[in-house]
Amino acid sequence: MKRRAGFFVFATVLLILPLIFKDSYFLTVTGTTALFNACLAISLNLFMGFSGQVSLCHAAFYGIGAYSNAVFTTTYHFNPWISTIAGLFITGSISFILARPILKLKGHYLAMATLGLGIIIHIFFVQADNITKGPDGISGIPNLMFGKINIKGDATWYYMASLLTIFYTWLSLNLLDSRTGRALKAIHDGETGAQVSGIDTDKLKADVFVLTAMMASLAGSLLAHKEGFISPESFNLQFSVELLTMIVIGGLGSIFGSLFGAVFLTSLPEFLSKFEDFEMLVYGLILIATMIFMPQGLYVGISRFFTGILKKLIKKDE
């Protein structure tokens, strides 16, 4: 219970925020997007930050989930929940088949292979227009229903996204605190060492890859119903790179760091939009500066900064 104190505080804050900031556009619109990104960042971090692998195709799995719900509910009039399960099944199968050959690769080759996979899936979204309606995307995706309750509106979706984020955080924290989590950290510190201590590293890496891909897919399925419209642009390589940036800016291997990184990078453009044409320029500069001055990520960097100030204050008192 004590170990999870941070988690309970976080979950409570997330659910209470809308009561404090009533009818805040920033919270319910940008905040919801940030939470969706946080879900993706947490799952990507589980794969990258803890087991030390690289993936540049996370956005593609997110896309498979979203497209599955969009296609099955609009073209075939399936129930949204069945479509979600179908999406999970498709993502699971693709990642399961490809996991072993791809994860045999290391370092830059692994980065290139996952990047290639992401691009191939994205090209499929754009080109297979008899299924995906091509670059124009799919519109008119029906609302999500819980029995008779219709899920719509910004505030409701904020709660949905919060619940998903809390679930993913809980899942990740528990997973990391288990035998599997410790095995993952062993792979991160040295694959050969992990093998020597009896961990089936190939199987474990593949399992985590499939699990995190399916986590991304589930978030994508929900996103399709939230937006009501999806297009290939949302699931391109740029977005995969942005997710990578989120977890590195937040701090690799820290669940709350990923949350922080996702919220920071999602809301940054909102603040930068007044720079208009200079927006990209400033965004790039902020990324570079963060990595130069806080190479372990903002979350660690800022908490060290504040503990530093605290220590100085305490010293002064003495």
Binding site: V241, L244, T245, V248, I249, L252, D277, F278, E279, M280, L281, V282, Y283, G284, L285, I286, L287, I288, M291, I292, P295
Partner: peptide, 28 residues
Amino acid sequence: ERAKGASLTSLIIITIGASIFFRGLALV
């Protein structure tokens, strides 16, 4: 050069930041 000692992932993020910056520069 400023980021000496940073991990490789951080360096990669710096080059990603630079690519966004250069794109922004060309846009302006």
